[in-house]
């Protein structure tokens, strides 16, 4: 599964995406964020306030308790500034 990073989060990590294979105990998007932060200090610091970020599963915004099973593309979205 792929994880996408956008805007200043992408810049802080120096990459736009990761190809990941999380262990079976990582069941939801919240679990996944927790797991990703534990293995990457830059992401951990950038997401110090996780409530700021929206999450998407296969290009649909979903809540953190959404399961990740079967997902192809997860995205971590910093606060948006469109319009």
């Amino acid at each position: 599964m792929k994880v996408l990073y956008f805007a200043w989060l992408r810049e802080r990590l120096n990459r736009a995406s990761d190809e990941i294979d999380p262990p079976a105990e990582v069941k939801t998007l919240a679990d996944l964020v927790h797991w990703l932060r534990a293995r990457d200090e830059a992401l951990d610091i950038a997401m110090a306030n996780p409530a700021l970020f929206k999450l998407s599963r296969d290009a649909r915004i979903v809540s953190p308790d959404t399961p990740i099973a079967g997902a192809r593309e997860i995205a971590i979205l910093p606060p948006m500034t469109g319009g």
Partner: peptide, 26 residues
């Protein structure tokens, strides 16, 4: 629609000045 676009559409703005690029804060 305008109010929703500002906060819920996945776009991120960067201002380019002579000092470089800076992300626009929400």
């Amino acid at each position: 629609l305008m109010d929703y676009l500002k906060t819920d559409a996945p776009f991120w703005k960067q201002e380019e000045t002579e000092n470089g690029l800076e992300w626009v804060a929400a």
